[in-house]
Each structure stands twice: as C-alpha cells, then as structure tokens.
Design a protein around this nucleic acid. Structure first.
Length: 264
DNA sequence: ATGGTGGGTAGCCCA
C-alpha cells in the first residue's frame, strides 16, 4: 500500500509542528504541501528528513504560494509548470522510484481568483480560469499513471459547499469555474477520488475560513482540495479520508489534509 | 451590504 496526503499548510515554517504531528500520526509515504510561503533555502528540510521524509522536492517562493512534495519513497522531480507564465510557484511534478514505481504525483496550487467572479473587472479571476484551462490542456495529454492533487480553489458540487444558493456568485463555486473543472475531468477521464469515496450528496468540506467563527458549529466549509487520478490509477485507490480534526489543532491551517491509500 | 481572521513581511499583498 502507498499512502499519499495533500495539505494546504498556509506557511510550512509556522506550522512545522502540525506537519510533524500529521507525519507521526498518519505515516503517509508521500506528502504534498501547498502554500509553503517560503524560499527553498528556508524549507524545514532537516526536520522532515529526521522523520524519514528524506526525499524532497521544493518549489518555493518568498512570502507567497510555493509547493513541496516530501516522501519516504525515492522520487525524482519531473517538471515545474508555470501555467500563468508569471513566475508564481504553483506546481511541481514527481515520479515515484521505489514502491509505486512509475506513478507520477503532480502537486498543484490553483490561484484563488480574487473576490469578484468577472474577468473584465478582476484580472485574478481571469488568471485562475486561464490557469485551469492550460492545466487541462496539459492534463489531457498525459500518458502515464498519474495523480493530480492539491488546492484547486474550486468546490464543484452543491454538497461541496455549506450553501449552494449563497455561494453561486462567490469565487470557488461559480458555474464558470465548475464548468472549467468539468472540462479538466473530461480531458482524460480523470477520477475525483474524494467523491469516489464520499458519495454525493454527502457533505464533504476541506476548508473553513478563518473569518467564520466556530467552524465546527457553523460549519461554513467548502471542498477546495482535491485528489484526481488517471483511470488506471483510480482503480487502485483503496481508501480515502478527510482529517477534519486537524482544523482544531493548535494554530491550524484553514485547510485540512486529504489522505488516499493505493494498492501499488 | 458588509466585514470578519490569518500569514508574510515591512507598508501592504494575498488568502
């Protein structure tokens, strides 16, 4: 079995103790982090290596964004795509070399897209749509067993948000974003592992805003984080969990980790 | 209709 986790950590340096706790408790083979918010040189490489995660690929950036994939399984970096062509660190792709040999793990941080869901008045929204479209074009040409994980900043289904009606015009749940994600899915028959295991219409959230008080009671969540597998790899997925409890850890990220086990 | 909180980092940007 190979266990893979994705987690938007919202500063890996500030929340290193939470990452260590996750690695102790879950012992995943591979951990994909987004929003590490640090340059490569300040990534806590030693601390994670001390827990056995000696294989590390870091694509950092000063202050913003940044992704990293750390692993107990040997891996090699394959690619760093810049789908906005603006230098932001939002993707890194690796190939597993030990167990699960040949499987590709793509770690993605889709732009949030700003506040107004209209590209004529909000350039960030257009950049988000363009990012997903270019990623879709790339994802349609993939010819190896591949897992694409990360913070997609899109909650496609009604049961992926706390109120479909109230969020229809809120960036992350607008019909134009949902349509873009559907085109991504259809480009290669990508399988939504989260929804393959937690079936609609069951509630499934991975993010609760810091601005909404009492996240557990009010539960104003959204499913922004995803794990998508190519068809052959999807058939090898055996279990999937959302670690909601991590939203209550001390000084939490606003996102929680997603875990999938694969029989590889 | 609005503002609410949090992180990085130096007067704001971004989520």
């Amino acid at each position: 079995m190979v266990t893979i986790v994705t987690w938007n950590i919202n500063s890996v340096r500030l929340r290193l103790p939470l990452v260590e706790r996750l690695l102790h408790e879950e012992r995943p083979d591979v951990l994909c982090l987004q929003e590490i918010k640090t340059i490569d040189q300040s990534f806590p490489a030693r601390a994670l290596a001390a827990l056995g995660y000696v294989h590390q690929v870091v694509h950092g950036q000063k202050g913003y964004h940044g992704v990293a994939t750390v692993s107990r399984i040997p891996l090699r970096e394959l690619s760093r795509h810049d789908w906005q062509d603006n230098g932001e660190a939002r993707h890194v792709g690796v190939e597993l070399l030990g167990r699960g040999q040949g499987v590709v793990v793509e770690n993605v941080y889709v732009p949030a897209g700003g506040d107004v869901p209209d590209r004529t008045v909000n350039a960030k929204f257009g950049q988000k749509l363009d990012f997903v479209e270019r990623m879709t074009r790339w994802a349609g040409a993939i010819d190896r067993p591949t897992l694409i994980v990360g913070d997609f900043n899109i909650a496609p289904l009604e049961c992926d948000v706390w109120s479909h009606k109230q969020l229809l015009k809120v960036v992350s749940h607008t019909p134009v974003e949902v349509a873009a994600l559907e085109r991504f899915r259809d480009a290669h028959g990508w399988s939504d592992l989260g929804r393959a295991h937690i079936l609609a219409p069951e509630r499934y959230f991975s993010w609760w805003s810091y601005r909404s008080p009492d996240w557990r009671r009010n539960d104003r969540g959204r499913r922004l984080d995803h794990m998508w597998a190519s068809p052959e790899l999807a058939r090898q997925a055996r279990g999937h969990r959302v670690l909601e409890a991590a939203r209550d850890w001390e000084r939490p990220s606003d996102h929680v980790p997603l875990v999938t086990d694969f029989e590889l």
